[in-house]
């Protein structure tokens, strides 16, 4: 936020010279695939958050007289076994899936960023402790870990409306270690750079070194890894919800929409129940990855995914 303010000011006064952020924008706009990804994401966001206002079925809910209808002029994507409009549910589910993905990302970035910075900057024993915890979390495979946590939490009978926050939290527990490691290694390599030695020679206090010198340098990394992690979070949420361990009905998520099509009959004869949410997950995750890759290439052409 700091740096964008600086950029604005600079663009006013030095119109000819291209600032760092301008170069980034230019490189980004040259990348067709990531623009396609961005376009689809904007579409899916509008679809999920604005779409329901145009649907006549939002408040209707269950309609026993109208179950398992195939797509028609009234119900473009048909209805499910409780008679709900699939298109409307797809929109409402999108809200939750996107929010969970975004929320999990923000939490992972905050936790991973803060712990990574602390590790890399202060080193020593603090670093050891944080990194060993991260190691443990990273050696445990992600999905089984999520399943175990989810199963334990299901026992606690969390009210369904809080359920999505719990899911975000779980996803960020799995997500932060990778980010913390990336941030830490970036901080370590930045600390070796001469300008950090210069800050020491200038007698700057740690807070200034951290927030003015190190943080702006890792913001690109945070943006890119954050973006990419949203895709992973949406995927994990869908998986958990598919197995009934994530977002649970009556709240809809793309994952638990697919669950409701779990009989062979539904699978074979009623593809409108599971194809739309499946496609939504697939395309959203792909788009996020395209966007993330594009951002990475634009921000730092030398930064390659490890």
């Amino acid at each position: 936020m700091e740096s964008s303010a600086v950029t604005l000011e600079k663009n006013k006064k030095l119109p000819r010279s291209s600032s760092l952020w301008r170069q980034i924008a230019r490189r980004f706009l040259q990348n067709k695939m990531s623009l396609i990804g961005l376009a689809f994401l904007i579409f899916i966001i509008l679809f999920s958050f604005i779409g329901p206002f145009f649907s006549p079925y939002v408040n209707l809910g269950v309609d026993p007289t109208n179950i398992n209808q195939s797509p028609s002029a009234q119900h473009w994507l048909g209805t499910d076994k409780l008679g709900r409009d699939v298109l409307t549910r797809l929109m409402l589910a999108g809200r939750i899936s996107l929010l969970v993905g975004l929320g999990a990302m923000v939490m992972s970035v905050v936790i991973g960023g803060v712990l990574g910075i602390i590790s890399g900057f202060y080193r020593g024993i603090v670093d050891q402790i944080i990194m060993r915890i991260a190691d443990v979390l990273m050696t445990l495979p992600g999905l089984p870990l999520l399943f175990i946590m989810a199963a334990i939490l299901s026992e606690w009978k969390v009210p369904t409306e809080y359920r999505i926050y719990i899911v975000m939290l779980m996803l960020s527990i799995v997500g932060w270690p990778g980010l913390a490691r990336l941030v830490r290694s970036q901080i370590l390599s930045l600390s070796e750079r001469q300008f950090m030695q210069a800050t020491e020679a200038l007698g700057l206090r740690d807070t200034r070194k951290l927030f003015k010198h190190l943080l702006p340098n890792i913001i690109p990394l945070l943006i890119v890894s954050g973006t990419l992690s949203v895709g992973g979070a949406i995927l994990s949420e869908s998986t958990l919800s598919f197995f009934g361990l994530g977002v649970v009905p009556p709240d809809a998520s793309w994952g638990n929409m697919i669950t409701s099509a779990n009989s062979l009959l539904d699978f074979q004869k009623r593809p409108w129940l599971w194809v739309p949410p499946g496609l939504a997950i697939f395309l959203t995750v792909i788009s996020i990855n395209l966007l993330g890759d594009g951002l990475r290439d634009a921000i730092d052409p030398n930064m390659r995914r490890r």
Binding site: S3, V6, K10, L20, R193, Q194, F195, Q197, A198, T199, E200, A201, L202, G203, L204, R205, K212, H213, P216, N217
Partner: peptide, 24 residues
């Protein structure tokens, strides 16, 4: 810390790498 940059200052060999690239 209060002395450094205040009463004693240092200039390094490589001006290109002694400044933070993302700050004005």
């Amino acid at each position: 810390r209060q002395l450094r940059g205040n009463d004693i200052s240092m200039i390094f060999q490589e001006p290109m790498t002694s400044l933070n690239p993302v700050l004005t």
